[in-house]
Amino acid sequence: MVRHIVLLRWTETATEQQKQDAEKAFHSLPEKVSQIQKLVCGADLALTPGAHDFAAVLDFASADDWRAYQAHEAHKAMIAEYLAPILAERSVIQFDV
């Protein structure tokens, strides 16, 4: 199984509504992208200074499924509509579980 972890930092001008909309968009992905086996995500709890603002953890059966997700139109649309307008920084990692 491949685990994909995404850490995001929002722009200073990102509104609470935009942040909530981005989280809802992430939550809607499994119903649109069949390759996603599991998705959990949420806003940072602000327990550690300097942490990212948001994290998403997605599981896939294989690297090919992860690649299909990356190329999927629903994933691309979510990035363009909800993330790109408020994204300041992004970090990702994929590893075998």
Rank of each mutant, 00 (worst) to 15 (best):
Q94H: 12
E89A: 02
A71F: 01
Q70N: 13
S91F: 02
A61R: 00
S28Q: 10
K24Y: 13
A84W: 07
R3I: 05
H75I: 01
H72A: 06
H72M: 10
L58F: 11
L29H: 04
P85I: 08
K24H: 12
T11H: 01
I79C: 12
D44Y: 06
G42N: 04
L39G: 10
T13H: 12
I93N: 03
W66L: 11
A84D: 10
K76T: 10
A56R: 08
T13C: 08
P49R: 09
E23Q: 15
D53Y: 04
G42R: 02
Q17F: 07
H27N: 13
M78P: 02
L29F: 03
M78K: 04
P49N: 12
A43S: 15
S91N: 08
Q18S: 11
W66T: 02
F95Y: 15
D96V: 10
L45V: 11
F60K: 01
A55L: 10
T13M: 06
P85A: 08
A25C: 14
A71G: 12
A56G: 15
A46E: 15
L47P: 04
A77H: 11
A55Q: 02
D53N: 04
V33L: 01
D21V: 07
A22D: 08
I5N: 13
T48V: 13
Q18D: 05
Y82F: 15
H52Q: 13
V2P: 00
Y69H: 01
V6T: 06
F26I: 03
F95I: 04
A22G: 14
V33S: 01
Q18V: 00
V2R: 07
R90G: 03
K38E: 15
E16K: 15
